[in-house]
Structure formats: structure tokens, C-alpha cells
Design a protein around this nucleic acid. Structure first.
Length: 343
DNA sequence: CTAGGATCCTGTCAGC
DNA sequence: TGCTGACAGGATCCTA
């Protein structure tokens, strides 16, 4: 779930908590989740936080970096950090020994939770999904991951760019023109457009949510062979990808702030921007037709069947079978990502 | 080379 | 209530 906007939100949020902080202890609860020796990060301070697509990189001041990937169910929760900027208003409550992210927030100590939204944002930690805990001088960082697909991996900082995954990433939508995307699509003419834009080596940053949203924006049926997408459609698709991700970024992606509403009730960050994702059975906000869920590229896929007709102009069409139903901006924010992409 | 499916792992939910 | 199978927002590996 954590896609590019979520990881970028996490990068910014963690920056306020752990930058400049010294690592005291590392607890690995699941061997699979921490790839490499944990000793190499002990005593080091956090120098910089970078993001490459959906991967987060924490650079330390001892020549080591942590490459982090949240995959499907990863989350990062930081709390307990003392801030130089904002002095504490209240004294920490000493009643409960293990406190939650919210407790720290109300004490005005920087706390941050982002990634797969679930009740870990509100619960005591470590919990049964905590895979790695990094203790700093004055706070803790928890890496939670229900399905254990994500990982934390220490590597020499000068080898980050040559890491197999990071080196293979295509440019992000802000760095790619519609024509460039269209040219890349030609190398995967036969595959469904959705499968192709999910491929991080073709375009970087889109996951299942934003792929559906961007295709809806561009009014392209996700199962259409990539080779049938016109240059004009590819240009709209790129614009759509930028817009849906920027909109999510503005709302903070899947963070505690979007999961927990002001009144303390739980929310769903998708409702802040999703037009089709998990809206099956509901009305299309453009035309009023019913959003349906289908299966494309082995993934649950949401479309408006009227806005995104299967009917497209191509001779290849006849060779393809329409997939069956499963069930019923452009303006650039003023910041730069670490690989030089202007968002 | 491409395209599609299985796979890693755990939890939840629908259906019986 | 308990069981079973399908599915979940990612990416890689294997096969044809």
C-alpha cells in the first residue's frame, strides 16, 4: 500500500523526528526483515533521509545507509523524540508505561506514524507486527510489517545508487514526458496498460491505487494492450499520475493524521482522493455510472465502465477478450526529491 | 526479449 | 462457531 506519496510523506515526517539523532540500540524481532548485520548502525547519527520511488533511504554519518522498503503492509512509527524547536508543553504522563503515538503527540513531542494504516497507529508498541525497533537517545522508531514482505537493509552509502532495486528504477512521472512514456509502452505492446504502468522499470512510483486512479483520469480501460494507447492518451496518463499523487501528498497519504480523524474516530485516507479505488458499487463522480471491480494483471482493478470503455480504436481489439467482472495538475509543489526529481 | 502466473507471509472476510 | 478458500495497496522469480 505504501506508494510514492506515502513514502514521501513518511520521509518528511521522519525527518522531523530522527534527523541528527544517535542510534543506541537495534532490536530485530524478525530475522527476515533486517538483511545484514545490525551492529554496523550502532552509535551512528542520522544524516539524511532520501527516497527513491517507494524505497526510503536513511543515511547515517558513519558511511552506512539503511535501505527500507515497506512493500504491502509496512509501517514506520516514531515517537518520544525531543524537539529543539518546540519545547514540551505538558509533562509526559508517567501513568502508563508503554504509550501510544497519540500520547506523545498530545504532549507536543514529535511523533509520526505512516504506512499501512491500521490500529498499530493507536496501539502500544512493540506489538506482534513489530519486526525491527531502533532505539535512539530520546525516542524509538518501529518498523511494523504484518506480511513480512518489507525489509530494512544496511548498505555502504556509496553503494546505494548501485543497489539492484534502486538502480533499476525508471524516472518518476514528474521527470517523464508523455512521449517518453508512450515510447516505453511500445516495448510492452501486448501487455495490459495497467500491468505496464505498475512496472517500476517503466515508470516509477505507481502502485495499484494510483494506477487505477491515473487510468480513470485518462479514461483508459486498464486491460487495453499498452500498444493501443495513443500518444495523446499517454500524455494524459502522465498528467493523471502526477495529479493523483500530488493530491494524495497534499492530504498526507496514509499517515496517522489521515487514519485518525480530529475527533479520534478512525478514517480511511482513500476517501480523501480516490475516485475509483475501492469505490465499487458507488457512483462515478464524472458520469454517475456504477464503479465496478474487475481483475487485470492479477490485481483487483477499479473502473468506471462508461468513462473507461473497453471499446477502443484498434485492429488488435478483436484478438483480446474483455475481462469479466469480479463483483459488484499539474502545478509543481516547491520541493525536490533526493534523486533530483522535481515534484 | 516479453507476458503471465506463482510466490513470499499473515490476517481478514465471505460463504458454507 | 469453525472451517475453507479467496484476496490484500509490492516486487521478484520462474516458465513458456
Amino acid at each position: 500500500m505504501p506508494e510514492l506519496p506515502e513514502v514521501e510523506t513518511i520521509r518528511r515526517g521522519l525527518n522531523d523526528c530522527i534527523r541528527g539523532k544517535k542510534i543506541r540500540e537495534v532490536k530485530v524481532f524478525c530475522e527476515k526483515s533486517f538483511i545484514g548485520p545490525k551492529e554496523v548502525i550502532l552509535g551512528a547519527k542520522v544524516a539524511e533521509l532520501r527516497r527513491f520511488g517507494k524505497a526510503l533511504v536513511i543515511d547515517l554519518d558513519n558511511g552506512v545507509s539503511l535501505i527500507l522498503h515497506l512493500r504491502m503492509t509496512g509501517q514506520l512509527i516514531a515517537w518520544g523524540f525531543l524537539s529543539e524547536r518546540k519545547p514540551q508543553r505538558k509533562k509526559p504522563s508517567k501513568v502508563s508505561k508503554s504509550r501510544t503515538c497519540r500520547d506523545f503527540e498530545t504532549e507536543n513531542r514529535p511523533a509520526f506514524a505512516g504506512g499501512h494504516p491500521d490500529d498499530s497507529f493507536l496501539s502500544k508498541l512493540p506489538n506482534r507486527h513489530t519486526r525491527v525497533e531502533i532505539d535512539f537517545e530520546d525516542g524509538k522508531l518501529f518498523f511494523n510489517d504484518q506480511r513480512k514482505f518489507g525489509f530494512v537493509k544496511p548498505v555502504p552509502t556509496d553503494e546505494v545508487l548501485s543497489d539492484k532495486f534502486i538502480a533499476s528504477l525508471a524516472p518518476e512521472p514528474w521527470k517523464m514526458t508523455g512521449r517518453e512514456l508512450w515510447e516505453r509502452l511500445q516495448r510492452h505492446k501486448g501487455a495490459s496498460i495497467k500491468a505496464v504502468i505498475l512496472d517500476q522499470k517503466v515508470i516509477c512510483g505507481l502502485g495499484n491505487i494510483y494506477a487505477d486512479e491515473a487510468l480513470y483520469f485518462a479514461k483508459i480501460h486498464p486491460a487495453r494492450p499498452a500498444g493501443t494507447v495513443s500518444l495523446a492518451e499517454a500524455e494524459t496518463l502522465i498528467r493523471g499520475a502526477r495529479e493523483v499523487m500530488e493530491r494524495s501528498l497534499e492530504s498526507g497519504g496514509s499517515t496517522m493524521a489521515t487514519y485518525v480523524k480530529a475527533d479520534g474516530t478512525k478514517g480511511d485516507y482513500l476517501e480523501l482522493f480516490a475516485e475509483v479505488f475501492r469505490r465499487e458499487g458507488k457512483e462515478c463522480r464524472r458520469c454517475g455510472a456504477e464503479i465496478v471491480k474487475i481483475r487485470v494483471a492479477g490485481r483487483g482493478t477499479h473502473i468506471c465502465p462508461v468513462c473507461q470503455p473497453w471499446d477502443f480504436s484498434s485492429e488488435e481489439k478483436s484478438q483480446r477478450k474483455e475481462p469479466s467482472k469480479v463483483s459488484k495538475s499539474g502545478t509543481c509543489p516547491d520541493f525536490e526529491t533526493d534523486n533530483g526529481d522535481i515534484l
